[in-house]
Each structure stands twice: as structure tokens, then as C-alpha cells.
Simulated scan of single mutants.
Amino acid sequence: MPKLREVCHHIRSKVAGPFWVTVDLFFDGEEKYRRYRDCTELSAELFHRLYGVDPALVKRIPVDSLHVLKFSFPRTTPQGGMVERDMHSGQQYVRLLDVELEAG
């Protein structure tokens, strides 16, 4: 099974306000986007397992025209708090790189 990093040409995470993180998956072309956009591995449950967030709060946004799949989820602690380790959420994507995918 291919890993997410093998089917995307770019994966990034970023701050989406003081209480949210957004992850963007830029698939490597329309064919890969169509194949993996709806796969069961890329679900709210994945973000629950990797980030400890409530799956009901995970937002999944496919952007067909750009071959991008976006996920937004609440941060476990507010941005800039006492225990902040990634102020801009720029390193949060790393947990997703080795997620294995089956064709949808």
C-alpha cells in the first residue's frame, strides 16, 4: 500500500486561528487525487487517532479543481499558550506522512 507522502507532491499544516489547525494534501495529479480522495484511511477517525481530537469536530474539505484535500481540526491547546510547542502548526503534518492508503 502506498504511503500518503508517495501520492502527494506537497503536504502542509498551518495555523487556522488560535484554536484550529488546517492540513492540506496536494495530490500528485488528478488521477491520484481521484483514486485517494475518498479512501477510508483519510477520515476524521485518523485525526482522532493521530492528534487526539474529537472526530465529530474534524472538517474534511475536498477541493476538486486543485486536487487538494483539506482537513481542519481544533488544537488541543490554544495558540501561544504555556505549553505551546508549534506556534504556527507548521510541523503537525509530519504524523501523516507514513499513513498507508488503499485505493478508493
Rank of each mutant, 00 (worst) to 15 (best):
E31C: 10
H48L: 04
L57R: 05
I61H: 02
T76D: 01
S13L: 05
R75T: 00
V68A: 11
L25D: 04
D24S: 08
P78Y: 13
R75Q: 03
S43G: 03
V15P: 04
V15Y: 03
R37V: 13
D38W: 12
S65M: 06
V23A: 13
W20E: 01
V63W: 15
H67A: 12
E84F: 13
L25N: 02
R35W: 14
R34M: 09
F27Q: 02
V83K: 04
K32M: 06
K59E: 14
D54M: 02
V63K: 00
R49G: 05
V58P: 10
A16Y: 06
R34C: 09
V15S: 08
L50R: 12
R60I: 14
G80D: 07
H48F: 12
E45S: 08
P62D: 03
V15I: 05
E45V: 15
P18R: 00
K14M: 11
V58C: 01
V58E: 08
R34G: 07
V83N: 13
H67M: 07
L69Y: 10
E45Q: 14
L50E: 04
H9V: 00
V23G: 06
T76S: 04
Y36T: 01
P18D: 04
R12Y: 07
H67C: 15
G29D: 07
P55C: 05
H67G: 04
I11N: 03
H10K: 07
T40Q: 12
G80H: 13
L50F: 09
G52Q: 01
K14I: 08
G81I: 08
M82K: 14
G52R: 00
H9K: 02
H9Y: 12
T76Q: 08
V53F: 10
E45F: 13
Y33K: 00
L69S: 06
E41S: 07
R49L: 03
A16C: 11
S13I: 02
V21T: 10
P74M: 01
F71Y: 15
I61Y: 13
S65G: 05
A44K: 07
H10C: 00
R37E: 14
Y33G: 12
V7R: 13
G29L: 14
K59A: 12
H10F: 14
S13F: 10
V68L: 08
L66T: 04
F27D: 00
I61S: 11
S65W: 12
R37L: 09
L50I: 05
K59N: 11
C8W: 14
H67L: 09
K70N: 02
K14D: 11
T40V: 03
D64W: 13
G80C: 07
R37H: 06
